[in-house]
């Protein structure tokens, strides 16, 4: 049976929409055919990934214009999760963001969001095109 889920959401570039984006991710994961414990863990992780990715697009990719739009696409199968977050801002250099400095007792704030994304997903890429930018994140589930 084909259990593929492909969801595209477009919403204003404002953090007040984070809750609804997280809920949509949660509902998508609940459709997966896997043990409840695995679903709940993945649901928590997806909520974090969506939040960090969207906030990144709003704050760091130049989409702070309240009239701007963010597009999120979630593709979910029993084997793979792909999250793409599209923005039309100036973009940023993903590789230029260092991991937070754990040697200073984890107190350094810079880079914590991207560190979380890299920790929870297998691959994180930021792709710039003439039409816009996309933060693409992949995770193998099986």
């Amino acid at each position: 049976m084909n259990n593929n889920i492909d969801i595209a959401i477009t919403f204003p570039a404002h953090t007040r929409h984070l809750r609804v984006v997280g809920r949509i991710g949660h509902m998508a994961v609940q459709e997966l055919d896997c043990p409840e414990e695995v679903r709940n863990t993945l649901s928590d992780q997806l909520a974090v990934v969506l939040t960090e990715g969207v906030v990144n697009a709003i704050k760091h990719a130049g989409c702070s214009d309240p009239n701007g739009k963010i597009q999120v696409r979630i593709t979910l199968t029993n084997d793979n999760l792909v999250v793409r977050i599209y923005d039309t801002g100036v973009g940023f250099d993903l590789d230029g963001i260092p991991d937070p400095c754990f040697t200073s007792c984890g107190m350094e704030d810079k880079g914590r969001g991207i560190f979380i994304l890299r920790s929870l997903m297998d691959r994180v890429e930021y792709i710039r095109t003439e039409e816009g930018n996309v933060l693409e994140m992949r995770k193998k589930l099986a």
Partner: peptide, 14 residues
């Protein structure tokens, strides 16, 4: 639910 911004504010308070 907490994200990196929430963590950052707790660090700031600390």
């Amino acid at each position: 639910f907490i994200d990196s911004s929430g963590l950052g504010v707790l660090v700031s308070g600390y």
